[in-house]
């Protein structure tokens, strides 16, 4: 930052930001008010077995573009008749590598 020549120094403020704290909250990157196809509970809420939403009850994205509560999907995949397919479109379930 250079010094002004045309104006006296005293008329400008010299402010330097030392620290900057801003809180933010996050939500799942899904359509608002959309629900998990397995438990019919909102994505932003949690699966029926959890009590608090958030880090403890994450979502999982499939390559088929379907999204579920991770707990719901695991329970489904462990069921004998699931045949490890996505419950929505019956294609073999593959977890998306990274959500875009």
């Amino acid at each position: 930052m250079g010094r002004s020549r045309s104006r006296p120094l005293s008329l400008t403020m010299k402010i330097k930001v030392n620290t900057w704290t801003v809180p933010a909250y996050w939500s799942w990157d899904v359509e608002n008010e959309d629900v998990c196809g397995i438990c019919q509970v909102a994505y932003d809420a949690c699966c029926p077995t959890c009590t608090v939403p958030g880090d403890g009850c994450p979502l999982i994205w499939g390559e088929c573009s379907h999204v579920f509560h991770m707990h719901c999907l695991i329970k489904w995949l462990n069921a004998p008749n699931s045949q490890e397919q996505c419950p929505m479109d019956r294609t073999p379930w593959k977890t998306a590598a990274a959500h875009s």
């Binding site: 801003v22 809180p23 933010a24 939500s27 899904v30």
Partner: peptide
């Protein structure tokens, strides 16, 4: 898979 919402009204700085 997350969205971030800033709470600017609660942000604070030491200057």
């Amino acid at each position: 898979g997350r969205r971030l919402m800033w709470q600017n009204n609660l942000g604070h700085c030491v200057v």
